[in-house]
Write a protein that binds this DNA or RNA. Structure first.
Length: 272
DNA sequence: CAGATAACCTGCGTGC
DNA sequence: TGCACGCAGGTTATCT
């Protein structure tokens, strides 16, 4: 489900809801795990710990306490929501109970998500974060960098920008959208991207991610922020999910094709 | 070894 | 109405 803009939106919404400062009473695990087993002794370890901050790395949400970091990846269908009463829904797998304020509930239909607990000092060495690439919204993510890193690579430019070992946070929606804005076909080999195209692509990635964050992310089916609100960026897709419809820029029909296992959309007239 | 594909899991829309 | 099939925001184990 969620790519960088959705995770960032969840992070900001949780902050606005006053999650920072809450103290854990218990953690209720309603099954053994998701994609991986839940960490042992989670409730015992977190009891009495206070959430000091909520940050994001790639598509991971990180809840920091005095001693630990709770690491949450939402896979395809995961989301967090707050709930005043103990009224649970199907696929509510984890409930954070605090000393005050609403409960925080992790719901994940397909269970592709991850929830882990790490000692603070072991965070950066953890297998989850160790191999992650550069943050696309960081100032050192530049056209120069993308150009240099993509030389001699035979993979498509689409799979390049979606590879979390290289660039983090860009998933299937924003890959198509960024390539459209940059005028680059997703089928191009990464090694054929010219220097000025690399510059345009990096600018497009940053811009599309910023715009998506500002409009609350994209809701295709499951995504909700912790208040239960849908995103708004799906109404502003240029190409994603628009196969056969007219390109908003030139009127040509939008094409679709599966690339590295994911459906991919582009305008054959605007993108070269 | 880089790159492509299958598998993990549930639900929903489509077409017969 | 029912059922089979394909497809969905991600990642990784397994192939070629």
């Amino acid at each position: 489900m969620p790519e960088l803009p959705e995770i960032e939106n969840i992070r900001q919404t949780l902050e606005h809801l006053g999650t920072v400062g809450r103290k854990f009473q218990s953690v209720e695990l309603r099954r053994q795990g998701l994609r991986t087993p839940f960490p042992p002794q989670m409730s015992q370890k977190l009891k009495g710990q206070t959430i000091k901050g909520i940050s994001r790395r790639a598509k991971f949400l990180l809840f920091e306490t005095e001693e630990f970091v709770i690491l949450s990846h939402l896979g395809m269908t995961g989301f967090w929501r707050t709930e005043q009463s103990a009224h649970y829904k199907k696929h509510d797998h984890v409930i954070f109970h605090f000393n005050s304020g609403p409960q925080l509930i992790l719901n994940d239909t397909r269970r592709f998500g991850i929830l882990d607990l790490l000692e603070k000092s072991k965070l950066n060495k953890s297998v989850w974060l160790k191999y992650l690439g550069i943050e696309p919204l960081a100032s050192d993510f530049s056209g120069d960098l993308l150009f240099t890193k993509s030389r001699h690579l035979k993979c498509t430019i689409k799979s390049f920008i979606m590879d979390q070992k290289r660039i983090v946070g860009v998933g299937n929606i924003y890959a198509s959208e960024a390539l459209f804005r940059a005028g680059i076909r997703p089928t191009r080999k990464a090694m054929t991207i010219k220097h000025d195209e690399a510059n345009a692509l990096v600018e497009s990635i940053k811009k599309v991610l910023h715009e998506a964050i500002a409009s609350g992310g994209s809701t295709i089916r499951d995504y909700r922020d912790p208040n239960g609100n849908q995103g708004g960026f799906q109404e502003r897709f240029s190409v994603y999910n628009r196969e056969g419809s007219s390109c908003l820029q030139c009127g040509h029909p939008v094409k679709a094709k599966v690339i590295v296992g994911r459906n991919t959309f582009w305008c054959p007239n605007c993108q070269h």
